[in-house]
Design a protein around this nucleic acid. Structure first.
Length: 152
DNA sequence: GCCAACGTTGGC
DNA sequence: GCCAACGTTGGC
């Protein structure tokens, strides 16, 4: 079982939305590095759910991978803002997973806390200018994150 | 709302 | 295949 971090703007889609209406197809990822990570996910993997563009930004809870290696249907839909004219059903370009809600942490692990506890080398989310929306989390870091939650 | 960072696009 | 222009992300 592997840990990952996924980002979302809560004004777009929040962990509370996932709790209320999930499971949800994690569609709309249009970055190759993020897509490659999505393709590596296995059922049962844990996802730290990160809220960006909010105050404060940070990890708000956990989700899990429900179904893997799904073709993102929004790439074929001209009405969608995620439409990709270069993708065809015969040759899809974008893949994703279905995620389901696990838990909301009693307190957000803020980006400030993350910066205090982890270096940019060990945890990409605290890297300046980081824009990757899906990234792996080393198991040692995952353990520390979970300990930070239970302590507080 | 600003702007730094950085991925992508397209002209050459 | 280079690289300038452009668009987007996301912290502040």
């Amino acid at each position: 079982m592997q840990y990952w971090l996924i980002k979302s703007e809560p004004s777009e889609y929040s962990l509370a939305d996932l709790a209320a209406t999930g499971p949800e197809l994690w569609d709309g990822v249009r970055n190759y590095q993020a897509r490659n990570f999505l393709q590596q996910m296995l059922k049962g993997d844990r996802l730290f759910f990160y809220h960006s563009n909010t105050k404060p930004p940070g990890i708000v809870g956990l989700a899990t991978v429900n179904q893997t290696n799904l073709v993102d249907p929004t790439q074929f839909n001209p009405e969608s803002k995620y439409f990709d004219p270069k993708a065809t059903p015969e040759k899809p370009r974008w893949y994703t997973v279905e995620v389901s809600y696990l838990e909301t942490f009693p307190q957000t692990i803020s980006l400030d806390q993350l910066k205090e506890n982890f270096s940019p080398e060990e945890f990409a989310v605290v890297r300046r200018g980081n824009r990757l929306s899906v990234m792996p989390v080393a198991s040692s870091i995952a353990e520390q994150l979970l300990a930070m939650v239970s302590r507080s």
